[in-house]
Amino acid sequence: MKLWLGIAVVVLASLFVASGVAAITRGWVVPWNRRRVSRPGLHGCGQLVLAFGLYWQALFAWVISDPGARAWGSLAGSAILLAGVIVLLPAQFMSGDRGAGR
């Protein structure tokens, strides 16, 4: 992995962590997702799982030199990313208390 691409992945994952922690602790969601997200805590958990998947893939791309282990690590990171997306979906489609007062 190129250094600039790895740095971009780590920065993106760090932004997911910050946004996920803000959603879990304060119920804050970025402005372009506020209309769609009905459960901010669940949305924040999904963002944390996505960030973990990105960190996992960056770790295996930079640290592991064995091609077989690198491939399995990348596959595991992709599975973690998919799990994060699966956690994010119910946060958008389940009815929650965010729109109850409107």
Rank of each mutant, 00 (worst) to 15 (best):
A79P: 12
A79H: 03
S19Y: 10
L3E: 11
L42R: 01
G99C: 09
W62Q: 11
L88H: 14
S95V: 05
A51Q: 02
W72I: 10
W56Y: 12
G41C: 03
F60E: 06
R39D: 06
G96I: 00
I80R: 04
L50A: 09
D66L: 00
G73T: 10
L48M: 12
L3F: 05
V11Q: 03
G77Y: 13
M94D: 06
T25D: 03
P90S: 08
A18L: 14
P40E: 02
A23W: 02
V49H: 04
V30F: 10
A58Y: 06
A83N: 07
Y55H: 04
P67K: 02
L50S: 12
G20I: 08
V11L: 13
V63W: 05
W28A: 14
R98K: 08
L89Q: 15
R36H: 13
R39K: 01
L48P: 06
A58G: 14
G6D: 10
L88K: 02
G41S: 06
V30Y: 11
I86A: 14
G27L: 03
L88V: 10
R36N: 14
R70G: 14
G27T: 03
R34C: 11
T25V: 12
G41I: 02
G96D: 05
A23P: 09
A58D: 12
S65N: 04
A51S: 05
W28V: 15
R34I: 05
L88Y: 05
L42C: 02
A71L: 12
A79E: 10
S95F: 04
G46E: 02
G77Q: 13
I86P: 00
I24E: 12
V17T: 05
C45R: 03
R70V: 10
L81F: 09
Q47G: 14
L5P: 00
A69Y: 01
L15P: 07
Q57E: 09
G20N: 11
L12H: 09
D97P: 11
L59M: 07
A23E: 05
L50G: 07
P31Q: 09
R35M: 09
A51N: 01
I24N: 11
G20C: 15
F52A: 15
G73K: 03
H43P: 03
A79V: 15
A71R: 10
R70Y: 03
Y55E: 02
W28K: 14
L50R: 04
P67M: 00
R102P: 09
I24S: 13
S74N: 12
G41F: 00
D97A: 13
I64M: 11
F52D: 02
L75Y: 15
F93Y: 06
G27R: 00
L81Q: 11
L15A: 13
G84H: 00
V11T: 06
A100G: 14
A22D: 10
C45F: 02
F93A: 06
L82K: 01
G96W: 00
R102F: 09
S65D: 09
S95C: 07
V29F: 04
W32C: 07
L3D: 05
R26C: 12
A100C: 11
S14Y: 02
W56C: 12
S38L: 01
I7M: 12
W62I: 06
P31H: 06
G101D: 14
M94S: 05
L75C: 13
A13K: 13
L15Q: 12
A23H: 07
N33I: 04
G27M: 04
V37G: 12
H43C: 14
T25P: 00
R98M: 10
A100W: 06
C45K: 00
L3G: 02
V49M: 08
S74Y: 11
L89W: 15
G53V: 01
S19N: 13
